[in-house]
Design a protein around this nucleic acid. Structure first.
Lengths: 238, 238
DNA sequence: ACCACCAACTTGTATATACAACAAAGCTGC
DNA sequence: GCAGCTTTGTTGTATATACAAGTTGGTGGT
């Protein structure tokens, strides 16, 4: 079977919600109506509604009907937002400055994180992300050449490394660490910090189905950056 | 119907996993076997297996069978670990020093976070958490008197506020923010920071079914503290 | 006007059946 | 020995049916 019937019904419903034909809390067709419209049995239509309910897209009440759930907080566990999107979504101008994009001999820490051997070639990029032309984040990223062979050929003024990597290899997992650090001179310079100022450093290791893809150090000044949302973490040995 | 039949089968399977009768990656009975054992139709047994699969308890392969999934990262989104447990689990001695435990007029920020009015009475506790007698975290916490009326009567040398609150009102949700901050003099003093040193501040707002329970500011020196795990966050306006 | 009942419709649970898709083991013929 | 086929058992999809349980709205009696 090309695609399962219940999957087609799910897609139809999702499509209607997507184009806002069916707004929040509006009623969706009943099991029987869907069954008739799609020429399937009630159980099949039911399964589509059921799965959408389990995914939080719909809610149902016995004796009443099925309805479109509120959209908030739809983001899945693995949604990792892109800093460009973040800045755009708060109505500011995003730009980036590419400082470096090369191949390096792999440092020890990076080697163990990406499953490489020390001094193996590894791709490295260094980018400053700016919000309204003010530096907001310094991104240092190591990328596995095996999984992303064309990394160094990309134009990261067009898209962020994160966008590119998500496109090339769908992420299956991400591991984060958050630290408060003392920025070094290099970081101070590129973030235009007049004096030493506490910075938030997010270390992000991402995985695709084939293994560890990249290790990124994202450093932002504490005065301009904050992280929030639903977190699930534990204290780590320092 | 008291409880649905498929729910009973689910409980049976979960029980077997719980008591480790069925270890990770071991096979669970097939749909037909379960159907026979429980005297139900295959579709009913199937549903039990199906739902456990969607919950990540089992995994199934067509043509092969159903198996117990690995337990790792079973922790739900809401598992928030206690600093005492964290320290214990890394083999160090935990202790705490209670600095303050009183009722205060509610500051504006706290009022909006907890759904109170400004200057309404609110409970406040201030505690230093120590690892091997070295200060690791300063915890300032505001607690809703309506939801936790006995908060100020507790002995927080015996258990942490987090333990107590989890016991009193099961948490349904938590909201976190992470910042890198410049510690003030008060914080420096209690964390015994010789010089000003970047600190990680985790702001945690917890909810029970009846509303916002507490707002906690957890401040730790960057040199001694780090957060890690599976995070899901977004950049926030500063 | 109000209450009690009923009819219609909804979702929820359960069953029996059929066939498809897939995997692994075993068997057969070369 | 081994490639290829068959058998068996598993999960996946789909259907038709039946009844339970809950909500809503209408109908009719008082």
């Amino acid at each position: 079977m090309a695609t399962a019937k219940f999957a087609e019904i799910k897609e139809f419903i999702l499509g209607q919600i997507e184009i806002a034909a069916w707004p929040e809390h509006s009623r969706v067709p009943s099991e029987n109506e869907l069954a008739e419209q799609f020429g399937v049995s009630r159980m099949t239509a039911r399964r589509a509604l059921q799965e959408l309910t389990e995914q939080g897209i719909l809610y149902r009440t016995q004796g009443v009907g099925s309805f479109v759930a509120a959209l908030k907080s739809q983001s899945s566990l693995l949604e990792i937002r892109n800093i460009a999107d973040e800045i755009h979504s708060r109505g500011h101008a995003y730009s980036a400055r590419l400082l470096q994009l090369t191949e390096l001999p792999c440092p020890t820490v990076v080697a163990s994180a990406l499953g490489l051997r020390r001094n193996d070639p590894v791709y490295f990029s260094l980018i400053v992300h700016l919000e309204d032309n003010q530096p907001l984040q310094l991104e240092a990223r190591y990328v596995s050449p095996r999984l992303v062979p064309d990394y160094v050929k990309q134009d990261f003024n067009q898209q962020t490394p994160h966008q590119y990597l998500s496109f090339i290899a769908p992420l299956t997992e991400a591991e984060h660490t958050v630290e408060a650090i003392w920025p070094d001179d290099f970081t101070c310079k590129h973030l235009i910090l007049k004096k030493a100022e506490p910075c938030l450093r997010l270390t992000r290791r991402t995985f695709s189905r084939e293994g560890a893809v990249s290790l990124a150090y994202l450093t932002s000044p504490g005065s301009r950056y904050r992280l929030g949302g639903h977190l699930n973490f534990s204290l780590q040995q320092n």
